[in-house]
Design a protein around this nucleic acid. Structure first.
Length: 883
DNA sequence: GTATTCACG
DNA sequence: ACGTACGTGAATACC
């Protein structure tokens, strides 16, 4: 059987335009919508293998619908010029594929699609409609399905009759009734005011059509709703009519005219070249295409030389050059455990592969590695340093890290593998590690020539990336941040990781035994009360016990069933004694599995834990920590806080010193917003939450109750997160209205903050990104989205990122400076950990006085703000005691 | 592999 | 009307 695919051209182009950043090609033409559209087209061709295909577009300004309703699509903002100029390009792409594109004056794309999908001719075919518009769901039947864009352009969701029922509980025919009731603000279709999707679905489950709902208006739940339905009955009927797709458009062709000829790869390549779609070009050549003639992309030839003991002297002249790329290959991701398999260097033309065996005995090479004047370009400087230094090599002279550069250019990417970067910044191709080594069980080690070639390609790629990224950094004003902060910080972090934190194994075991006993006891008690044994760790089984068996009220649901999260359980606790036990069990279980068992696994042969700090993970500029994560060791509850007793100094008689910034984020806000009241509070050393409570509630210091302070504190946090009344109401368990009042009063009290928040969002909408104090960027592609959720999230992010990111800038700066000062003063103390707003050191007793002064001095002075920074220092025999 | 939960700032 | 707090990592269950 054949397959007919009908694409809603405007809808997909629209989707693509807003999902992708405004790309341009060399001629300055915008191509993001064309690119996204083409990605979708390729996906459909590859995955659906259609025999017949048509792309329908909307034509002109007015359609027959305007006869019924003048305001149809009246409020819709004009299609931006950047998008409309891309429509002809999309048609060019379609021409190259020899795909029919079609539009007809007076009709919308929907109507053309509907006419074809429901034509008698289509009945013998499987039909698939591709769109981002829910309306098209009305066309679904036994042989018509809809592929709807979900997120971005290529993430889709397939709807058949069953899927429509699962999603809405409606037949496809009822979609028009749904829209009749709800309306659609983007098309200026009114519907019934005050009726959203929830209410509309409830009504349609009671009566199947708009007509019947109107007829039985008296039987509807709630007087107000009845009134609204009666009052706006005409409007609902009109809305339904407007939403109905017209399936009898006079077309001069039929389905059989839409037959898809074999792809002419030459034509397609030409268009792709013109548009500079280099990765797509690769894709059509490397397979997956519908037709014949699948041509393998030529793997680029790369030259390399394997250096062995016999002829290493002749290669020594390569090392004389003042700048080379170097890459270290390892057996695993974690450099603290990995073995080095080999090292490669490149000057951009020649590549050398140096097996570990050679490197170990080659003094000239070792001298080159250790020479600060021999500049090295690397991918992942920290990992490179750690792995080489662990094997006894000294290192210096790292000039530029392409990984850090790529991160600064866009910290929101999910992957920064070399292969990704070659594609992203060079529009080139490099096989990924996964492709080369395989994954999971298929993973294998490379050796000899194969390994040498792969590493040669990598180092060569690093060489090519360097000038491109350098230029991009300069253009984005990120060069100083790179060389003045992130590069030096990487060295500091490498040192901290290698130093590691000493663990008191005995204490860890003892705590483990204690927690295990506690867990066993709670398990017995819970089984006893429940009357059955079950897996308390399974939210599913737990939900069945709590809500089905014991009949507790369901306060919150998740996608898959009942929610059993702590905030739900806390509210249920007064109703049944089992709940408290479960909460306690969860708490103890977490401590045991994550912190006792989890930490034990990570203790090295030296009795220390060597975490990895990641410098390119967060979108805000913060660090993250893994294997293990030492940035989330418990502190809030005493029972968990005791875990900190296991972290001790590595030498007898030394101390742990913890220094934390007090309220950095709010101080940063005071600085960025220039709000006078907020600045006043910090300049006069007032307790900020009490001060906020006084200001917001209009009371004197002595009148501030603990509850008022708690509320003020939550508002302060909320402000930093990019506040919403809903979020605050959830946090404080109050109504939205009350939360809104708090926020309004806060902004009245601190008008500078309000002004700042508005400015930063406005700027993000204009520029497409926000920045921190040091110019660190974060792009917010959804900031102008029509989707309320995406847009709101982007707006909150716009408010939060400069604050969180500036705080990250500050402590990073302090770390670099602190490392420098400790070396200058020849101190033996060592910086061990960073936890976002605090630094942990181990300190010999005789250095305590100097460190107690030096650390806060450096941290407070890191980046001068218009308000003072305040650092509190604590010392103890373990991390626990340094409080 | 995804979802849920919970530890931290 | 929409449906949310910002940023992370790890363990566990379940498909």
């Amino acid at each position: 059987m054949g397959k007919l695919v009908l694409i809603d051209g405007n809808s997909i182009a629209f989707r693509a335009f807003y999902a992708l950043p405004l790309l341009t090609n060399a001629t300055g033409t915008y191509t993001n919508a064309v690119y996204g559209f083409t990605m979708m087209l390729l996906k459909v061709l590859e995955e659906e293998k259609p025999t017949h295909l048509l792309v329908a577009f909307d034509a002109g300004k007015t359609t027959f619908r305007h006869n019924d309703y003048q305001k149809y699509k009246g409020k819709r903002e004009k299609t931006p010029g950047e998008l409309s100029e891309q429509i002809p390009l999309i048609k060019e792409v379609l021409d190259a594929f020899q795909i029919r594109s079609f539009e007809l004056e007076g009709y919308e794309a929907d109507d053309i699609i509907g006419t074809l999908a429901h034509s008698p001719e289509a009945e013998g075919l499987e039909t698939l409609i591709v769109s981002g518009d829910k309306d098209l769901l009305q066309l679904v039947n036994d042989h018509v399905q809809v592929l709807m864009t979900r997120k971005g352009v290529t993430e889709t969701e397939r709807y058949d009759v069953k899927a429509v029922d699962e999603r809405y509980g409606l037949t496809p025919g009822q979609i028009i009734d749904l829209k009749g009731l709800m309306g659609d603000p983007s098309d200026n279709i009114p519907g019934i005011p005050g009726v959203g999707e929830k209410t509309a679905l409830k009504l349609l489950h009671q009566f199947p059509t708009v007509e019947e709902i109107i007829e039985h208006a008296d039987e509807l739940p709630g007087k107000k709703l009845q009134e609204k339905v009666r009052e706006h009955a005409d409007q609902a009927l009109l809305s339904k009519k407007l939403a109905t797709i017209y399936t009898e458009v006079p077309l001069e062709f039929g389905v059989s005219d839409l037959k898809l000829p074999p792809t002419d790869l030459k034509k397609v390549s030409e268009v792709f070249k013109k548009l500079e779609f280099k990765t797509l070009l690769n894709r059509i050549h490397t397979g997956g295409e519908t037709g014949e003639e699948v041509r393998e992309a030529e793997p680029e030839q790369i030259s390399y030389q394997i250096v062995t003991a016999d002829h290493r002297d002749e290669t020594e002249k390569v090392l004389k050059q003042d700048q080379l790329a170097v890459y270290v290959e390892m057996t695993e991701e974690n450099p603290h455990r990995a073995e080095v398999t080999g090292i490669a260097v490149s000057d951009g033309k020649a590549q050398l592969y140096i097996p570990m065996e050679t490197a170990r005995h080659w003094e000239a090479f070792q001298a080159w590695l250790a020479d600060g004047n021999r500049r090295k370009i690397v991918y992942d400087v920290k990992k490179t340093m750690v792995s080489l230094e662990n094997k006894g090599f000294q290192t210096d002279g790292f000039q530029f890290d392409v990984l850090l550069a790529a991160y600064l250019l866009n910290p929101s990417e999910s992957r920064y593998e070399l292969s990704d970067m070659v594609e992203r910044h060079l529009q080139g191709f490099l096989p990924s590690d996964e492709e080369v080594y395989g994954k999971g069980a298929k993973r294998r080690a490379l050796e000899g020539e194969e390994l040498a070639r792969h590493l040669a390609r990598k180092t060569s790629a690093i060489c090519q990336l360097y000038p491109v990224l350098l230029k991009e950094l300069e253009q984005a004003d990120l060069y100083d941040l790179m060389c003045g902060l992130e590069m030096p910080l990487a060295g500091v972090l490498a040192g901290m990781e290698q130093q590691g934190v000493r663990v008191d194994k005995k204490r860890l075991d003892d705590l483990g035994i204690e927690l295990k006993e506690s867990m066993d006891r709670l398990t017995d008690e819970i089984y006893e009360i429940a009357g059955v044994e079950f897996n308390i760790n399974s939210p599913k089984q737990l939900g069945e016990i709590l809500f089905d068996k014991l009949g507790l009220p369901v306060l919150k649901k998740t996608k898959t069933g009942y929610s059993t999260s702590a905030d739900v359980l806390e509210r249920l606790a007064p109703q049944h004694e089992i709940v408290e036990k479960i909460l306690h069990y969860r708490q103890v279980g977490k401590l045991y599995s994550t912190y006792i068992e989890g930490l034990k696994k990570e203790i090295g042969r030296d009795g220390k834990i060597h975490t990895q700090f990641h410098q390119t993970i967060t979108a805000t500029g913060r660090l993250s920590s893994t294997e293990p994560n030492l940035q989330n060791i418990p502190i809030r509850l005493e029972e968990g806080r005791r875990i900190r007793q296991v972290f001790v100094p590595s030498k007898e008689g030394w101390y742990m010193l913890a220094a934390d910034y007090s309220q950095v984020e709010l101080r940063v806000l005071a600085h960025l917003s220039e709000d006078e009241s907020l600045q006043y509070a910090f300049k006069h050393g007032l307790d900020i939450h009490t001060q906020t409570a006084m200001d917001v509630f209009g009371v004197s210091e002595t009148e501030v109750t603990p509850l008022m302070r708690r509320h003020a504190k939550a508002v302060n946090f909320g402000i930093v997160y990019g506040i919403s009344d809903f979020g605050l109401s959830q946090n404080l368990n109050i109504t939205r209205k009350e939360a809104k009042d708090f926020i309004d009063r806060y902004f009245e009290t601190y008008p500078g903050v309000k002004r700042y928040m508005d400015t930063v969002v406005k700027q993000a909408k204009k520029e497409g990104f926000v920045t921190t104090l040091l110019g660190r960027r974060r792009y917010l592609p959804d900031i102008n989205s029509r989707n309320f959720n995406l847009r709101s999230f982007a707006e909150r992010t716009a408010m939060n990122t400069p604050i969180q990111g500036t705080a990250a800038d500050i402590i990073k700066y302090a770390m670099v400076e602190m490392d420098k000062r400790m070396k200058e003063e020849k101190l033996e103390s060592r910086m061990l950990l960073q936890v976002h707003d605090e630094l942990i050191f181990e300190v010999p007793e005789e250095e305590l006085p100097v460190m107690r002064t030096l650390v806060p001095e450096v941290m407070e002075g890191a980046l001068p703000l218009s308000v003072p920074l305040q650092v509190d220092v604590n010392v103890g025999k373990s991390w626990y005691e340094a409080k």
